[in-house]
Each structure stands twice: as structure tokens, then as C-alpha cells.
Design a protein around this nucleic acid. Structure first.
Lengths: 145, 145
DNA sequence: TCACTATAGATGCGGCTGTAACCATCAATT
DNA sequence: AATTGATGGTTACAGCCGCATCTATAGTGA
């Protein structure tokens, strides 16, 4: 007998939407950012000089989402493009000082929110959660190759 | 030091998208259903005679999503509405024979996909996963009250 | 050099989504 | 009965998304 509330794709998606909502109010209402924009900002803070393609791969976003997010962040002057002279199809992206500052502020909220979730789940469970998500992610890569 | 790949909302959303994609190809390509439509179909197979509001609460969907999914399923003749005579604002929804048959076919695919995921994670881990998702869900309810 | 294929990134278009507003109905109060 | 406020459900609208396509550049082989 099939039960929707024990179906992993369904439960995972509901949980992801619920948990993401809790943080999205911060970057949406307080900073006017969309989720793709927040993700590109956070990715670029770690992968300085990355290309749009690299960000898309790294953060599992569709390339058009990245393209549009980059455009918006550039408009805010939080992000700069630099053409790769060796391969002029690519652009290396980096955050401006304003972009870095905005990221730093958001990270404060993100860390506080993460602390709440870790407290709720417990440290041990959280490690297990990441381990499972890693497995699912690794398996997903296999399907698409 | 903040790391995006250890941020629960982000990892949960990426995993949910990846895992959901694996099953959505079935109901999308093979049956032409959207995700809200699949969810309403599955909910209604369990909660016969439920109202749109009950489905929205039960499956964590926005009421406009439910409204549109119900409309589409009705158009396919997979779903019937019956006005509640005691409270004429509500409609009790139920699946037609065609709707039940479609659901049964989809459940076969869903069960097979679920089996793959359970095999990947292991039975013990899967139980822990549901336990964590339950905790997150319970906590989410608390925030909104 | 030319033709062909592949890749990075941008964009038009149609479809989906949430917000806010709306309609109809109900419940409580006067 | 009339007023007021709450609730179930629908919808117009504006914004977001992915697919398909396009442009520009690069690589490969004849």
C-alpha cells in the first residue's frame, strides 16, 4: 500500500521548501534578492573568479538561472565580469567590495538559522543527514552520465 | 567560516530537486501531469472526499496551486466535485474510476523508484531520514502559529 | 583555409507560481 | 434582518523558470 507521506521525493521536497522558506524571508524581504541570486553570491564568495558554467555545475542550477542572476547582481554592482583572454567565450566572475559586504551580512543570518536547525536535529543526526544527502547527490551524478 | 555546501536549506533543496526529478519524468513525460497534479491525485487517493483546503494543508501546497491542479484533473475526468450541502463554500473531491486507475499505474512507478532510493540509503538510514524530516516539519508548524 | 562540431553564455517564448484581490457563503452580533 | 468579520475557493497580474534557439568563440580534421 503506497503512502505519500513515506515517499522520499515528496517528503524531501516538502522539507526543503519549509526549511528554505525560513531563510529566504531574510534575503528576499531584507535585501530584495531571489534565491538564484543568493546562491550565486554565496558560490562566488567561495569560488572567486569562477565562470557561470562552473557556478551552475557547482550549485546545481540551470545555466539560464545563473545567467539571469549574474545579470541582476552585476546591475547592483555586487559583481564584476572579466573576459578570459585565452578563451573569449568565458567570463570570470568576482564580487565587488559591496558584494562581499552584502554576503558577509547575509552569512550572519545564515549561520544563526543554521544553528537553530542543528540544535533541532542534533549534531550527530545532522552529520548523518549530510551523509545521506551526499549519497543521493553522488547517485544523481551517476544517472546522468 | 561559512560553507554553502554545509548549509542545510541549500543541501536539502538541491537533494529534493535531484530526487524529485527522477520521478517527475514519469508523471510528466508519460502522463502529462504537473507536480501539483500528481500530488493532488496521490493525496486524494488516500483522503477520499477531502476538500481543496484539506489537501493544501495536508500536502503543504499553496491553495492556488491546489485550485489549479483540481481544475486540470477535473478536465481530464479523473476527479469529481461534490458540493457540501451543510457548508456550501466547500467542495468534497473524489477520484473517478479513470483517476483511480491512473493513480494505480503511477504508484507502480513510484514504488519502484522508492525501492531504489531505499536500497541506496539503507533501511536504517531511511528511517532516520524520515525521523529528521518529521522533526523539521513539526518545527515548521510551530513557527507559523 | 574551410567546414563541421562543440561549448559559454544570452534570450524569446510559453508555462507555472505566489500575491493580492475578489466572490460566495457562513457565523456572530446587534 | 442587517452588519461585520472570517473562510473556501477562484482569478488577474506580474514575476520566475526551463526549453529551445541563437550568437560568438574555440577546436578538429580534410
Amino acid at each position: 500500500m503506497f503512502r505519500l507521506d513515506r515517499f522520499i521525493p515528496y517528503r524531501l521536497m516538502v522539507a526543503a521548501e519549509e526549511v528554505s522558506l525560513g531563510f529566504s524571508v531574510t534575503y528576499k524581504r531584507q535585501y530584495g534578492l531571489s534565491r538564484p541570486e543568493w546562491r550565486v553570491l554565496a558560490s562566488l564568495a567561495e569560488l572567486r573568479g569562477a565562470t557561470a558554467k562552473e557556478i551552475a555545475t557547482h550549485s546545481s542550477m540551470h545555466k539560464t538561472k545563473v545567467s539571469r542572476a549574474v545579470f541582476e547582481l552585476e546591475k547592483r554592482k555586487w559583481l564584476l565580469r572579466k573576459l578570459d583572454e585565452a578563451d573569449r567565450r568565458m567570463e570570470h566572475l568576482s564580487l565587488t567590495k559591496a558584494g562581499i559586504a552584502a554576503h558577509a551580512k547575509l552569512v550572519v543570518h545564515a549561520t544563526a538559522y543554521q544553528a537553530k536547525l542543528l540544535a533541532l536535529l542534533g549534531e550527530r543526526s545532522s552529520e548523518q543527514l549530510f551523509s545521506m544527502l551526499d549519497k543521493l547527490h553522488a547517485n544523481h551524478g551517476k544517472d546522468r552520465s
